[in-house]
């Protein structure tokens, strides 16, 4: 276990460095016109534009800029925004925004898991019956119709019907319900359909037939064996899902005016806000890699038959 963890940590660090350096250098290849709007071009002559770029530090040699970035990192300083929120420390921006995405994301994840796993079990146990049919219709609707459509419909209709606010207000808890529910809908479908599929797969295995023929009660077979084994491929994704809730949801945060992290990376790239892009790429790549790593560990803990060493690591599920 120890050598495996060390090896994975080394690989992870290498991957993060490659991602961060690549993105850092790619940003420096962007045209300098991206730092200016139309109005800026009208107001600023070439001298003023050059002075502006120099004072932002983007005219420095990229290697020197990277050195500044690394030395800042060592002091837990991610720099200051240069375009979206000029001069605001990136850490301040993240500290303001991340909690919104985290809380909404975690709440939605808990609901998704609770209802999604429950629905999955029900669908598997009632395979080809009414409950399974209703669940399948729900999953099909959520996954087949573009989410933008039903998210807008929920906002328009439900708020109108119940007289709830159309956007999120921090001091009105009723306005938290729809964004959380909207975030959960696709998660519920995801957990339900995959758990159903893995449970049905497991039910057809020899050990289940054997246990059933030995006279074990169906409930015990389903919960003690089928469900437990069906959960193995799903738990692999759980750490990543938890960690990446911090990234927020571009769509839902936009619709409900939630000031979270969703859309921040896209905006930062569009406006060439290098310090924000660098910080987010670093954050998301670290969390993504940590999520995969923790997923492997968790899967091994859930299913002791899985060995992480000596056989090329854990075998991933199909989810």
């Amino acid at each position: 276990m120890g050598p495996y963890v060390l090896r994975r940590l080394g690989q992870s660090l290498f991957t993060v460095v490659i991602v961060v350096v690549s993105v850092f250098m790619l940003l420096r290849l962007m045209p300098s016109s991206g730092y200016f709007t139309r109005e800026d071009y009208v107001n600023m002559d070439a001298t003023a534009r050059t002075a502006y770029l120099r004072n932002m530090g983007v005219l420095d040699n990229p290697a020197i800029q990277f050195g500044h970035f690394i030395s800042g990192l060592a002091k837990a300083d991610l720099g200051r925004s240069i375009a979206i929120y000029p001069r605001t420390p990136v850490l301040t921006i993240l500290a303001e925004k991340a909690p919104y995405s985290l809380w909404f994301g975690l709440a939605a994840l808990v609901i998704s898991m609770g209802l999604g796993l429950g629905l999955g079990v029900l669908m598997a146990r009632q395979k080809d019956k009414v409950a399974d049919g209703i669940g399948t219709v729900y999953v099909t609707i959520v996954r087949a119709i573009p989410s933008l459509i039903w998210l807008f419909l929920i906002q328009q209709w439900v708020t109108g019907l119940l007289g709830w606010p159309m956007v999120f207000y921090g001091d009105r808890p009723v306005s938290w319900i729809l964004p959380t529910a909207s975030l959960s809908l696709s998660g519920i479908a995801w957990y339900a359909i995959w758990l159903r599929r893995f449970m049905v797969d497991e039910e057809n295995r020899d050990y289940v037939r054997f246990a059933t023929s030995k006279g074990l009660p169906r409930r015990r077979v389903m919960t003690g064996h089928v469900l437990r084994n069906a959960l193995v491929p799903l738990v692999q994704y759980f750490p990543q899902q938890v960690l990446l809730t911090i990234a927020g949801s571009l769509l839902i945060e936009s619709i409900y005016s939630i000031p979270g992290m969703g859309g921040l990376l896209v905006n930062a790239i569009r406006q060439q806000d290098n310090p924000i892009v660098q910080a987010l790429v670093l954050l998301y790549s670290v969390l993504g890699i940590a999520g995969v790593f923790l997923g492997d560990i968790l899967m091994m803990l859930v299913d002791p038959r899985i060995k992480l060493e000596g056989s090329g690591g854990a075998k991933a599920g199909k989810a």
Binding site: F36, E39, D40, V42, N43, M44, D45, A48, A51, Y52, N55, M56, P86, R87
Partner: peptide, 10 residues
Amino acid sequence: PKSGIKNLSK
């Protein structure tokens, strides 16, 4: 110039 006030036109 270090204040970065972009609308200070020529």
